[in-house]
């Protein structure tokens, strides 16, 4: 009896967990390549809107997921290109694309939402939730293997730690960051699509807004490590999914419940920064710094 309720508690958190986890792993991969990723929240919001709109027009949640992945990956490639090819400020590019994402999300989602508020959502069944968790685990393990054991992963990390040295050893920095951007943002897009299609199961203007930052905190508090992110994403997913249960238990208002993930995200950032974790899981050395090589005579 007790075990089944615990099982439900765990399985029920699967959509929120998977959404945060995929977005956080994507964020981690992209930042490992040295690009400061402040556009995450905008693209997360946009991805949610696109997934919803697609799932309304073509009543198939998988198409929504696919559309969100494709558009988000394009954004990732765009960010990687602008920040690596030109000596632009990563922060400014990220923030401006965040606003673009917010704007486009409303522009795309609202007209469709006013016609049909119902899309083809993912089923709320145990089998689907188990599938989600398994998929998340597989993606996490693959991402971990890719980052730590393959030549590609080593090159991506080198691009983040010291792009100048990596470049002189023959690593194409632009190519690595483009790949990291595409992969990372594809995962962020997948997370966003699952957030709306599997977790909230409703879309209104502003759905997903701010939750990209929660994914940001989930990734940062686990040092951008795909396996450690499992723990932080599980905590956040559980918290968010059960926040209404907690609210009922402690007589909290829905406003406090809505606030909880953001407070938890801030606490996670503090917990990470105030403990020895920060030294063990240090960010890439050149994260957010302008990559510019002086012209060489050929």
């Amino acid at each position: 009896m007790i075990s089944s309720s615990i099982l439900n508690l765990v399985l029920g958190a699967a959509p929120a967990f998977t959404a945060y986890y995929l977005a956080a792993v994507g964020h981690g991969i992209f930042e490992k390549s040295g690009v400061l990723n402040l556009a995450i929240d905008g693209v997360f919001t946009l991805g949610a809107a696109i997934a919803f709109s697609t799932a309304v027009i073509y009543p198939n949640p998988n198409l929504g997921l696919l559309a969100s992945i494709c558009v988000s990956a394009l954004f990732g490639v765009f960010i990687a290109y602008l920040t690596t090819k030109f000596p632009t400020s990563h922060g400014a590019i990220g923030l401006s694309l965040m606003f673009v994402g917010y704007g486009l999300a409303s522009l795309i989602g609202l007209p469709i939402r006013t016609q049909t508020p119902n899309a083809a959502w993912y089923p709320m069944s145990n089998t689907f939730w188990i599938e989600l968790i398994v998929t998340a685990l597989v993606i996490g393990i693959l991402a971990n293997y890719m980052l730590k054991k393959t030549k590609l992963g080593a090159s991506i990390r080198a691009a983040g730690e010291n792009p100048y040295a990596a470049s002189s050893l023959g690593v194409d920095i632009l190519k690595m960051r483009l790949i990291a951007g595409a992969l990372g943002y594809a995962l962020i897009g997948a997370g966003a699509a699952l957030f709306v299609l599997a977790y909230t199961q409703s879309w209104s203007e502003g759905t997903g807004m701010g939750h990209g930052w929660v994914a940001f905190a989930v990734s940062l508090s686990a040092g951008r490590d795909p396996l450690l992110t499992l723990i932080s994403a599980a905590i956040f997913g559980g918290l968010v999914n059960n926040s209404y249960y907690l609210a009922a238990q402690f007589y909290l208002s829905p406003h406090i419940t809505n606030m909880l993930p953001f407070i938890a995200a801030l606490v996670a950032l503090v917990a990470f920064a105030a403990t020895p974790l920060r030294r063990k899981l240090a960010p890439p050395k050149e994260l957010g710094k302008i990559y510019f090589k002086e012209e060489r005579t050929v």
């Binding site: 400020s89 400014a92 590019i93 401006s96 606003f99 917010y102 609202l110």
Partner: peptide, 26 residues
Amino acid sequence: HIIISGAAIKFTLIGMVLLTFSVLRV
């Protein structure tokens, strides 16, 4: 039948001007 929120217009405008500016500032 076509609903465009004020926030959407503002965010698109803010984002696009800022994006152009961040690139051109180079």
